[in-house]
């Protein structure tokens, strides 16, 4: 089974599936946060990595960016930059989660639920999920050759 992606005219079905999964994960995570931005601002504050002035702007922009990336992932011509956006987001999440774990701060990542109990265990799980997403997005990004991509 072949599907159309920015990789070329036809790409294996598993690439299409991976794109759909990443888009679903980012879309869902973004919508959950958008519906509870005030709660999400407290989740961000708990990480203790941002100055107070940036917490609320980030709480507003990050979920919108996630939803936008999810939507753009479904546009074949824009999949490569969208995958790069996903990679950058995941890299940022990974750094922040690692920082919290190293400092022993119990956190919930706020990724899919804003009522998750903060703990180091939850942070480890979130870091694991983040690594899986990075692996999937990086695989796809490296397979999407820029030369096949209209600039």
């Amino acid at each position: 089974m072949l599907s159309s992606t920015s990789l070329g005219k036809k790409a294996p079905w598993w690439e299409f599936l991976l794109i759909l999964i990443i888009a679903a994960v980012f879309g869902y995570a973004g919508i959950v946060k958008l519906l509870g931005v005030a709660d999400f601002s407290h989740v961000i504050a708990r990480f203790d990595v941002l100055p107070r002035a940036l917490i609320n702007p980030v709480a507003l922009i990050l979920p919108t960016f996630e939803v936008l990336l999810a939507a753009v992932l479904l546009v074949p011509a824009l999949q490569r930059p969208a995958l790069l956006g996903v990679l950058l987001c995941c890299a940022m999440f990974g750094m922040v989660l690692t920082s919290a774990i190293i400092r022993g701060i119990p956190v919930s990542c706020g990724c899919f639920s804003l009522i998750e109990k903060p703990s180091l265990h939850a942070a480890w799980w979130a870091l694991g999920r983040d690594a899986v997403l990075v692996a999937a997005a990086l695989t796809l990004y490296l397979k999407h050759k820029p030369s096949l991509h209209p600039n």
Binding site: V72, R80, P81
Partner: peptide, 10 residues
């Protein structure tokens, strides 16, 4: 160019 497009998305 991908970075530029990510920036536009942002």
């Amino acid at each position: 160019s991908d970075f530029k497009r990510v920036l536009v998305l942002l």
